Computed example of a mutant assay.
Amino acid sequence: MKKIADRFAFILKYITFLLLCLGFIWCIYFLILGAVMPQKTDYANSMSELIVCVLTVISIIFAFIEFSRRTND
């Protein structure tokens, strides 16, 4: 069971980093969109908040799995 948990944590780590990088790129896109098109500022702000919320939940899940895995050592 420990091998499976270690393998899952390893995969989840890279998925989390990938999603964080993609979220960063999208947030920069929406920042530029809000700056270039002032009428889209509310939309860009809402989308950026949504991206940050989703990435926060993903990061919390990753942190919980890492914490659980390391306390079993």
Rank of each mutant, 00 (worst) to 15 (best):
C21S: 10
F24M: 06
R70N: 09
V57A: 11
R7P: 00
K2S: 08
S46H: 07
I32H: 00
L33K: 09
I61R: 00
Y14L: 12
Y29N: 06
A44V: 07
I60H: 02
L12N: 07
G23T: 00
S68C: 06
C27P: 01
F64A: 08
L19K: 03
I60F: 12
S68H: 08
V54T: 10
L31T: 09
L31Q: 06
C21G: 08
R7M: 13
D73W: 09
S59L: 13
F67Y: 13
T41W: 14
I61S: 03
L31D: 01
F24H: 00
E49S: 11
A44M: 04
S46N: 15
F8N: 06
Y43V: 08
G34S: 00
D42I: 10
L18T: 04
A63R: 06
T56L: 07
S48Y: 02
S59T: 06
I51Q: 01
T71N: 07
D42G: 11
F64D: 06
W26D: 03
L19D: 09
K13S: 11
I4G: 05
A9P: 06
F24L: 06
R70G: 02
I11P: 03
K2T: 14
S48W: 00
G34N: 02
E66I: 14
I15P: 01
D73Q: 12
G23C: 02
V36F: 02
A44N: 06
L18C: 11
V54L: 14
V54C: 04
I15C: 14
D42Y: 10
V54Y: 07
K13D: 14
I25E: 06
T71P: 01
S59Y: 00
N72S: 14
Q39C: 06
R7L: 15
C21D: 08
A44W: 07
I51E: 02
Y43L: 11
F30P: 01
A5T: 06
S46A: 07
F24T: 08
F8P: 00
G34F: 05
K13N: 10
I32E: 02
D6A: 12
T41P: 03
V57H: 03
F62H: 12
G34Y: 01
